[in-house]
Amino acid sequence: MNTTDHAAVTLRPLLHEIHHALQRLAQVGEEHTIDLEALPFGPGDEALLLEFLGSGEVAAQLHALGESRVLESRFPGVWLVTHFSEEGVRLAQQLEITRTPALLRTPQEELGVAVEQFAQALREQGGADDV
């Protein structure tokens, strides 16, 4: 048995978990997150998982406390979210079974600040009279 066969055996429960989560998302809209750091991956397991998931239509990059990558897999609704530190070290990796990963939506807390900032920018750009 080579590494790939072995990985296939250990990955099966995870793949089933993803499948069930996807079914629940499709049927009742229930979201699910899997922390990949908490799984006892052996050598080659992660590469095989990523190969299986492939890449889909969306690839987003965030810059907040280091880089974060949000990729939709070839299966719509299955997202891979990877967080890196400012030094480029991977902090966390999660699979999100959702229609939109929460991280992509603008946080409510920052909307108020955004309104202020926009007004400020507008003032600076065209004078204060029409704000």
């Binding site: 899997i34 922390d35 750091e37 907040a64 902090l91 946080p107």
Partner: peptide
């Protein structure tokens, strides 16, 4: 930022071995 903070919390929760 708020996203940065949430990311920090995600990493911390993962480090604490807490479920997502």
């Amino acid at each position: 930022s708020r996203r940065g903070f949430l990311k920090f919390c995600t990493a911390t929760a993962s480090m604490m071995a807490l479920p997502p």
